[in-house]
Simulated scan of single mutants.
Amino acid sequence: MISKKIYNTTSIAIVISMAMLFCSCADNYKRVGDEAIKNIFPSGIAEDFTLTYTETNGEKEEDGEVVSRVVAVLKSAVSNDFDNLSFSYRTFPDGLKVEFFDDKGMKSTVTADFGIIYSKTNLIDLQGNVVIETEDGKKLEAPQIFWDRNNDWIFTQEKFKYTNPEEGTVMDGEGMDFNRSFSFLHANRTYGLMSIKEKKDD
Rank of each mutant, 00 (worst) to 15 (best):
D152C: 04
W153M: 10
T169G: 07
G137N: 10
N150C: 07
D136L: 07
V170W: 07
T169M: 14
E174T: 00
P143T: 03
E167D: 14
N151Y: 14
N164R: 01
M171R: 02
F178A: 12
F178T: 01
Q157A: 10
N151P: 07
P165S: 05
Y162V: 02
K161S: 11
D148L: 04
T134N: 11
G137V: 06
D177R: 02
E141V: 01
G168T: 02
N151S: 09
E141K: 04
Q144W: 14
G173Q: 08
L140A: 03
A142N: 08
K139A: 08
E166N: 12
T163N: 10
I132K: 00
K138A: 10
F155A: 11
E133Y: 04
E158T: 00
E174S: 03
F146K: 10
D136E: 15
E158C: 04
E141N: 05
N179V: 06
F178K: 01
D177E: 15
G168V: 04
K159V: 09
Y162N: 03
E167G: 05
T163H: 11
Q144N: 14
I154S: 00
V170G: 07
G168A: 14
E166H: 07
R149V: 11
D136W: 06
T134K: 06
G175Q: 06
E141F: 03
I132R: 00
G173C: 08
Q144H: 14
N151L: 12
F155L: 10
R149D: 15
P165C: 10
N164E: 15
G168K: 09
K159P: 12
M171L: 15
E166M: 12
P143K: 04
T163W: 07
E141W: 00
P143G: 07
Q144I: 02
I132E: 03
M176H: 01
G168D: 15
F160A: 03
E135P: 03
G173W: 07
M171G: 05
K161A: 08
I145F: 01
K139S: 13
I145E: 06
G175S: 07
D172A: 08
F178H: 03
R180Q: 14
